[in-house]
Each structure stands twice: as C-alpha cells, then as structure tokens.
Design a protein around this nucleic acid. Structure first.
Lengths: 335, 335
DNA sequence: CTGAAAGCGCTTACAG
DNA sequence: CTGAAAGCGCTTACAG
C-alpha cells in the first residue's frame, strides 16, 4: 500500500500507453483519438488502481476552484445553518463545493477570511461581514471572484457588488409599531451596534419617535444569548419603567427572557419580549417568542443562484443587483 | 483592470528578474540567493500589483491541501455547529482551512462526500457517517488521508481508524434508570435506527430489562423535530399507557413535547420527557428539557488535534485510537 | 548572486 | 489512432 494517490502516470506506466491517452479516456470516455482496445485497458487499470482524478490539479489547470464559500459571523446562531443549507443545495447541484468560514464577528477573523479569499480558494463567495468595508473588497472583485453580500443595501447605486438583504429598519419599525399597538409605551431595545443591529435600532427609533415615545437603549456586547441575559439583568437591576423589550435578534431575546424570569417577572404580563430572525427555537420557547421571520434557506438558495449567474457570465456583466427579501411579523405569546 | 490574478510571472516581467527569484523572495524573504536591491524591487512590484500567492498552485506543488473537512449529517441540528466551532478553532490555529459537508444523513449524499474526499480536496477529515461502512473508507486511508470517525467505537481493535465517541448505550441506560428512579414504569423511547439511535435504544432496553419493565418503541423517520412531533402524535392517538418518553436526541424530544401539548397533556405531570445532546435550546424550553450533556466543542477540538497529529506523523504511525468522551445527565424540569 | 530546469497532476492543442 | 509538448502557478534543487 503506497500511501500515495495513483495518478495518470501510474496508469500510463501500467498500460504502456501515454499519459495523454489516459487523460483523454478518463476525461472524455469514448474519444476517437484512442482505440477501443487502449481505452479498455486504461479503464481497467484505473479501476484496479483505484484512480480518482486529483481535483486540485484539475482546478489549477482550469484556473477555477469549482468551490463557493459562505462567510458567516456565527455558525452556532441557528439562523446561519439554515441559510447555509439552502446555499449548499443549489451550489452542489450546480457542481460547486461549499466551504464555510466562521468569523466569530471578529475584525481580525474577517480580515483572515478576506485574505483567504484572495488566495484563490473559491470562485465565489456569499459573505456576511460586520467589519470589512466595501472598499476592501475591490481587490477581490477585480480578480474575478463572484461576490454576494448579505445584510446591507447599496449605499450608492454605482457599486458593482450583488446584494441580498431584508429591510431591517422597516421590519424593526413594524415590530415596534406592533408593540405600540398593544398599548406598550415603555419599550426598550436590546441591541449591538454591529451587523444588522444598527439598522434594526434605526427602525425602532423611528417608530418610537413617530409615536412620541422615548427610546430606551439596552446595549449588549454581542448577538448571543449570554449577552442578552447580561444586558437585560443589568438593565433590570436599575428597576426601570419598561413594559416591553425588543431584541435585535432571537438569541438576545432568549437571553433576555431568562434574565426577566430570573428576577421573578412574568412574560408577557410584566414584560413583553420580541425578537428578530425566527430561529427554530423561537416557536418552542415558553412563552413562544414573537419575532420577525425571514426565509433563510431561500436567502441561501438565491445567493447561490446569483453567484453562479455571475460566474456563468464570465465577469462579462456585473450588474450590482440589490435584491430585497420579504419578512413577516410573527406574533406569538411573548408579546 | 485585468480580471486576472497577478502571478509571479507578472512580477518577474515587471522587475526584469526571473520568476525563480520572485518565488524565493516572496516565499522566504531575506534569502542570500537574491540581492537586497532585487528583493526590494520584487516586494515593491508585488505590493503594487496586489500579488497574493495562489494557494491552489502551492497546494498542488506541496501535494497537500492544508484543508480539513468536517462531514456532518445535519448542520441545522445545533449539536453540530457547536462541534464545528471547536474543530475550526484548532484547525485554523494550526494553519488548516476547514470545509463543512452536510450529508443530510442520506446514503447518496454520504457517497458523494466520500467521493469528494477521494478527489484529494482535504488532508484530513472528521466524519460522522450514518450509512458508509468502515470497509468503504479503506481507500481513503490507503492514500494517506487522515481520518477521525465520530460516534461508533471500534468493533475490532485491528482497525486503523481513530475514533471519538461517547458511550451512547451507557448514557441512554443511565438516563432510563434515572427515569425509573423517578417511579416511571411505562417509559417509551422515540428513536430512529440510524447513527447513534441504535446504541441509545440498546441502553434503554438494557435498563428496562434489568428493571423488569416492558419496552415501548416509538419509531421516528429522522432525527429532526418534525419527525419527533409526528411520531409522538401518532403514538398518543392510540391512547397508550405511558408516563415518560425518552427521545434519542433533543430535536426529537422537542418535537414530542409539542405533540404532547397539542393533545392537552401536561409535561411532566402527565408525561415526562427526556432528550439527548443538550443543545442550547434544551435549557430554554418550557419546561426545561432533561437531557444528556456532552461537550461538543471539546469533541471538535479533540478531533482536530487527532487529525493534525496523524498528519504530523506523516502516516508513520496510525494507531487507531478510540477515545471515549464523558457525558453527564442533566436533570431539568421536563422529567 | 542569478536564472534555467524539473516537477506537483492534470488538460488541451499540436505534430506525426 | 498515438504521443510529445506546453501550460495552469507555484517550489525547490541545480548549474552557472
């Protein structure tokens, strides 16, 4: 046992034919340039040696990696695996492998991801960056890497990058208005400034302002459950006037629910809670979490379609499409 | 804008030096074989052209991909992202990229994953297969791919594959005994025959048998929430005698809880529920789910360590280690 | 100090 | 029908 992959040269040596003939047969099967006899011998030897083409070599030759990447801030946030699933389904059906890169929403890890992309590992990438600015992506685009960005609509129409987003501000505004309609007057927002946090806060503020209500900001230091729990606990310790809390995502909301319960308050009677994302756990909480639903799998599928379209166009056209995806308010028992 | 990556040849052309010199400087920096002046010109040109080495070419040359893979049955089951995180942390710190492959627990998708591995994309792989038999992995091992399997202890000590597992049967047995200790006599088990399901059922059966109790099997057609809900609903429709349900994983348990509530029964007063995995949602359910905890991130980290050790040993030693990881029963309110 | 050469494993023109 | 040749972008001996 050679502990080495058999190559076309090995097959050529075994059959006494040229490596060219081996490549031709293995790649194109019944090719007129090789006799039926030679072909049979090649296929038999390939079978016997357990030959599988080295994809890395094929990729180098093709100057394409046949791989797409998905860059996400936190794969343990259930909203992302759902998206990844949809992305993989479409990508793999189209013959692309998928790599997932988790940045932990850290600036240096996002830089690392960007550098990794520049190294040519992938033909295209679906990215959700929290720190990397658009200008930094110019180099990537310039060398022909297909790119779809998640989560922020284009600032200027001039940019050449495809985008996929939900109206975070609009959705947050709608949810805030729904809370106001339920007679809440003291509505706080737990959020984190990064990623979609800013836009969601903006929507909340705009709804509060329109209703003549005062905003109450509860800053969290991340988008995870623990951050929500800590932020809410600290807030509650000040014995504030607050009948509802809107969290910038479901994990924060779930953490906040734990903090509320920990001080003996009831949800929604004492404090109502709403989240954002509609992760699977949201419907299963007690009380079930009111939240904003998006179709993450559809987002992933659409992103893959856009990347493949870009690659099929061979960089010929690069329209910089910005596609807005729908959302729905899901009013459950927590608010 | 060339829509093509700059290569070492481009830098050589720009500086009038040889491609060899460019490679030497870019790879080794201050190398005696190149003059300080030449080196400066090369670095400047590389900077100006935005040169980043093509990792695919480097990998072909090195006959190593510097990539590890994680093959999981369902990335949307929160138990796997937790493991992936630990795996990535160690892998990336050691200079390996990580690819994630989701098989959806389908036989054909697992075959696809195996074939993909054979194509040489990765140096090592952490795999959780439900269908692929060990014998089918021989080819992979023979060509030097490092391998760590999750979830099944070695049948024979002779196999040459590293393994990482928890004592599924023992844990299920312990949980069943805990339910029996709580005076439950009619304990059903919801499970699925694949993956860890069989072992967990075995533990359940052994505990029931020892206690002189009759087993009650509720077959599910997968390890997801919906499957748990359907299976439990169907079971409840028969108005069975049953005071506790043990589910082979948390997603099944959560689905079962929904089905129990749907027919107006209370948890745990009418039917107690226990799960397996301790996904983050388990602690947040109402009532909080009693379950079996494992440290998934530690499992991922350890797997990465084992793969890297195998690769560092250059296939010299391949001990076929089987490492058992600890588990803990987490008794919460649902049982 | 410098560059021509061979090679990683493949593909695809190009001569015979 | 068949094989020698060039090339994908790199690295590393090997001559000068």
């Amino acid at each position: 046992m050679p502990l080495r992959r058999p190559t076309q040269r090995d097959i050529a040596a075994a059959t006494g034919l040229s490596q060219t003939a081996v490549s031709l047969v293995l790649r194109h099967g019944d090719v007129p340039a090789v006799s039926a006899d030679a072909r049979a011998r090649i296929l038999k030897a390939a079978q016997r040696l357990g030959y599988v083409p080295n994809r890395i070599a094929q990729n180098l030759q093709a100057t394409r990696s046949h791989t797409l990447a998905c860059i996400v801030p936190d794969i343990t946030n259930p909203t992302y695996p759902a998206m990844v699933r949809g992305f993989q389904a479409v990508s793999q059906a189209a013959g692309y492998d998928v790599m997932i890169f988790d940045t932990d929403a850290q600036p240096e890890r996002e830089r690392q991801a960007l550098n990794w992309l520049l190294q040519g590992h992938v033909d295209g990438v679906l990215a959700s960056f929290f720190h990397i600015a658009e200008a930094e992506l110019a180099g990537l685009v310039r060398r022909g890497t297909a790119l779809v960005l998640i989560g922020r609509p284009a600032r200027k129409t001039s940019t050449q990058i495809d985008r996929l987003y939900v109206d975070n501000a609009g959705a947050a505004r709608a949810m805030t208005q729904a809370l106001i309609a339920k007679k809440h007057r003291h509505i706080a927002m737990i959020s984190h400034p990064l990623g979609p946090g800013a836009e969601r806060c903006r929507g909340y503020r705009s709804a509060m302002k329109d209703a003549g209500l005062r905003t109450i900001d509860i800053p969290a230091d991340g988008f995870v459950q623990d951050a929500g729990m800590r932020a809410m606990a600290e807030f509650l310790a000040q014995r504030p006037l607050c009948s509802a809390v809107f969290a910038a995502n479901d994990l924060l909301a779930i953490g906040a629910m734990a903090a509320i319960r920990a001080v003996g308050l009831r949800i929604p009677q004492d404090i109502a809670v709403a989240g954002f994302d509609d992760i699977p756990a949201a419907a299963l909480m007690y009380p079930a979490l009111t939240t904003v639903h998006r179709s993450e799998p559809a987002m992933g599928r659409m992103a893959a379609d856009m990347l493949i379209a870009q690659l099929d166009a061979h960089g010929a056209e690069r329209p910089g499409r910005s596609i807005e995806l729908p959302y729905q308010l899901v009013m459950r028992d927590s608010a």
